[in-house]
Each structure stands twice: as C-alpha cells, then as structure tokens.
Nucleic acid binder design. Sequence first.
DNA 1: TTAGGGTTAG
Length: 461
Amino acid sequence: MVRCLSGRLSTKLLNISIASFCKAQRLEKAEGLIIDGIRLGILPDVVTYNTLIDAYCHVVSIDAAYFVLDRMREAGISPNVITYNSLIAGATRKCQLSRSLDLFDEMLRMGIPPDTWSYNTLMNCFFRLGKPEEANRLFRDILLGDLSPSAATFNIMINGLCKNGYTNNAMTLFRKLQAYGFVPQIITYNSLINGLCKARRLKEARCILKELGESGQFPNAITYTTVMKCCFRSRNFDQGFEILSEMKSKGFTFDGFGYCTVIAALVKTGRIQVATEYMKEMVSNGIQLDIVSYNTLINLYCKEGKLEAAFRLLDEIEKRGLDCDAYTHTIMIDGLCKARNIKGAQQHLAYMNTMGFDSNLVACNCVVDGLFKVGQIDNAMNMFESMEIKDSFTYTSVVYNLCKAGRFHFASKLLIICLRSGMKILKSAQRAVLDGLRDSGYTAEAKKLRSKIRKARLLHH
DNA sequence: TTAGGGTTAG
C-alpha cells in the first residue's frame, strides 16, 4: 500500500506519523518509523528532521538534538531557519543562554536569514540574561528592517521590560502599541499585571485588570493566580481569598503550585479547617506531591498540633525516595517548639546540622523563641548570644520574650540598639517594652524610651 | 518563540 503512493506523499504521511509520536514524547517510535521508511524507500526530508530536533530539544537535551542535526547533514539535507529556531528556543528553555547566542551566530554564518521568530526567541534570551539593552537593540532591528513584528514580539518586550525592572518603559510601550492599533492579548495583560504587582503599583495593576475586563477578553487562571498571589504578598489576605472564590466559581482549577499558595495563606491566617479541605482536594485530584507540597502539608499538621501526622509524612517522604530540605526540617523544629517539645526541637536542630543544613537562621530563631516560651530564659539568652547571624525576627522575639520574663530594662536597651542600627522591630514588641516599663512603675524611663524610639525612627526615614 | 508559580520563624 505504502509503495503505491508517490514518494512525496509518502514522506508527508511519514512526517504526520512522526509528529504524532513526537507529540506523545515517544521518540524511539518516531526513530523506528524513520528506519522503516528508509527500508521502504521513503526518505526523510527537512520537515522530518526538524520535527525530530524540536522533540529532542523538548524531551531530551540540546546535545541530543545536535546529534540529529549531524545525521541530517550526513543525509545531505541542509538545516533551515526552523531547525535553528527550534535549537535556539530549546537552549533558551534549558537556560543555556550563551548557547542560544552561539546558535544564532552559527545560523548567520551558514547564510540562513533569521526570521521574526528567531529574533523573538533571541530577545527573550537577552531579557533572561538580564541584558534589556541588547533585547531592545533587536527590537529596533525588527522595526527598522524588513521583518514584521508579531504579537509575540510585543509580548516578549513588555514581559522582559517588566522582569528587568523597567515597568515604566513597559507601560509606555503598551500605550504606544495600543495607539498604533495593537490589540493586547491575554498574555500581554497578564505580563503587565504581574510586572505592576511586583513593583507594588497596585492601583495601576487594578486599572489594567479593569481594561482587560472591558476588552471583551476574559481573565484566565494565570490572571487569577497572579492577582491572588499579589494580594497575599501585600498581606491583603481577605481580598486574596475573594479572588480565590471568584476563581473557583468560574471553574478554574489548581495545579500543585496553586494549592501550595492557597494552603499556606489559609494556614497563615489561621483558617486551618479550610486549609485541610484544600489539602484533601489536592490529594483527591491526584496531584503528585513533591517536597514543597509535603512541606506545606507538614506545616498544616504542625499548626493543628498533629505532630504524629507530620512525622508520618516525613516517613512517606523517605519511602518515596524524596529528600527533605531546609524548609522541611525548619517546619518540624517550629512545630516541636510550638508543641512545647523543646528537647525534640533541639535534637532535630542537631540532626539538621548533621544533615548538612548547618546554622539555619530560621530554625535557630524558632528554638530561641521556643526556649523562652518554656521558661528557659538563660538557655535562650545563651543561644541568642552564640548566634553569629541574627535578623529582625531574632531581635523582635528576644525583645518581646524579655518583657514577658519581666526584664524590661534589658529589653529596652536591646530595643534601642536595634532601632538605632536600622533593624526593624515589630510594633507589638516595642509596645510590650513601653507598657512593661510604665506598668511596673518606671514611668520616666518609659517616656525617655518613647523619645529615643522617635529619634531612632527619624534616623532611618 | 511570549504570561503565574508554591513551602518556614517574631
């Protein structure tokens, strides 16, 4: 049957079959088909090899794709612009950015003129390298040369400018493009919204979101998770949860990333019950748990006081052959501290150190705080003094706990040293010192401290 | 070829 078809048509059919195997990531099947084809006299052409090269870039590696390129040349078929575009995009995806640049040069040396697609990919590569000027140079080349920019060209520019901190330029370009008749796509809107959120320009982000709504297009799952994450980041939890319920009511679902974000935010705001429901939903939706999802769930169990369940998950991690990371151990240490099992926490900290996660600041902060909470004030102070690195969490905790232990004068001294050096101390800890001094009869000291606090604030404004 | 990413302490 195959022999009856003309050679060209047969190659076309061969290519269709190869493309479908490549799409299913069954490269050995695709390779087998090429061998069968050759036996039957059906020769692969440039499309066959390009399909295969693109698949190797996606599924295996650029090196593997390069071997296919060699085979292609040996078969007497010259690579074209599509071959190189696949290789350049593949290298950029795998963060082999200098390789992308080399491939672009190689393409020029071979006398293959790059198209808009090649330029787009290379612009993206320069943005990822943190070289916006170079990307902009290519953008100018497109505008001044014979090539026509595509929607992707504009999207890559807007996204890249935002990612490199040029949110203003991204906004200006966006408005200019609109004035020239470019209709922004959902990708354009999402890029800009994300850039504005990251730059904490929430008012403008809201404005672009409104324009998206008025454009006749609809926000998608990426829009929702971007805005939700932005709310959580700025601690507008209620607003974030409103967006979450709107997203759910529209029928959007989560992947592992989305679930972790939502569960962590729910735990942070004490909504343990709802967080547990999301955890169940995540598991029943068949999401493969990785170490970050395990950490999120262990944290949830710890906050519920279900330490045994947390330890069971640790066993599960081990059984599945995954490795615990610094987060896993820190979460466990905090959980043990909160459960007043300070000995267990100290043991786990020592274990963590033997595992090579030594001097983890967050874990140490948890143990110092834990020691105070169980009344081991001297041990807490000894550990605090022995720590080489300290941050605002360390000091806030120590200042606050010293007050709880009635050591207001010491707390006051420490507080003022911190504030003068520009260290941020939670207002609630500052208040604890002032109230403590005043309530125990040291009104004059309290007044003096208040004035010192004010002056220290002026120093760092 | 282009958009979002997740987890810890006061």
